[in-house]
Each structure stands twice: as C-alpha cells, then as structure tokens.
Simulated scan of single mutants.
Amino acid sequence: MKRIVWLGVGVAIGVIAYQKISEARSLASPGGVNRAVASLADSVAHFADEVRAGMAEREGELRKGLGLEG
C-alpha cells in the first residue's frame, strides 16, 4: 500500500514539473511573454470591473437602507 501512495506522489510531482517546464518554455519566446502580460492585464481589468460592480451594488443597498433613493 505504501508503494502505491509513493508512486502516486511521484507521478503528481512529475506532472507538476512537466507543466512548469512547459510554461517556462512558452514564456521563453517573445510571443509567450506578450501573451502572459496580456493575460495578466485582462485578469486585472476583470477584477477591477467586478470590484466596481460590487461597490455600485453595495452603494445602492446603502442608499435604499437610508432612504436616500429617489
């Protein structure tokens, strides 16, 4: 039973290492860096949009609760 567990751990480590190596290779090309930066920028923009939407929703709740609406 212990051997099966250690085999699973070894396979998991191998898969993670393969993914990291593949990611590093894709970033080695100039296009890879551009894709990574664009992806990061898109993620930040999406997060900012979600924060703004949450703030607007909360402001509406507060205005309604305080009777300031309309």
Rank of each mutant, 00 (worst) to 15 (best):
R63P: 02
S29R: 05
I16L: 09
L7Q: 13
V5Q: 12
V15Y: 03
A38C: 02
Q19D: 11
M1H: 14
A45P: 02
G31W: 13
L40F: 07
E50N: 00
V5L: 11
G54L: 07
D49T: 12
E61P: 00
E59R: 09
R3H: 08
E61S: 01
S43F: 06
A48T: 13
S43I: 03
L66A: 06
M1G: 14
D42H: 06
G8I: 09
G70R: 06
R52H: 08
G60C: 03
L62E: 06
M55D: 04
E59L: 11
V44W: 09
L7K: 15
E59P: 01
V9F: 15
E69C: 02
L40G: 01
G65D: 02
L68N: 02
H46R: 12
A38W: 08
G60W: 12
E59H: 08
N34S: 11
Y18I: 05
A45Q: 11
S39N: 01
A36N: 04
I21E: 03
I13P: 05
E57Y: 14
I21M: 05
A12Y: 13
P30E: 05
A36L: 03
V33A: 08
L7W: 12
E57C: 02
N34F: 11
G31Y: 12
V37S: 04
D49W: 10
R63H: 12
G32H: 14
G70K: 06
G31A: 15
S39M: 01
G65V: 01
E23N: 10
A48Q: 15
V15L: 12
K64Q: 13
A17Q: 06
R63D: 14
L40M: 03
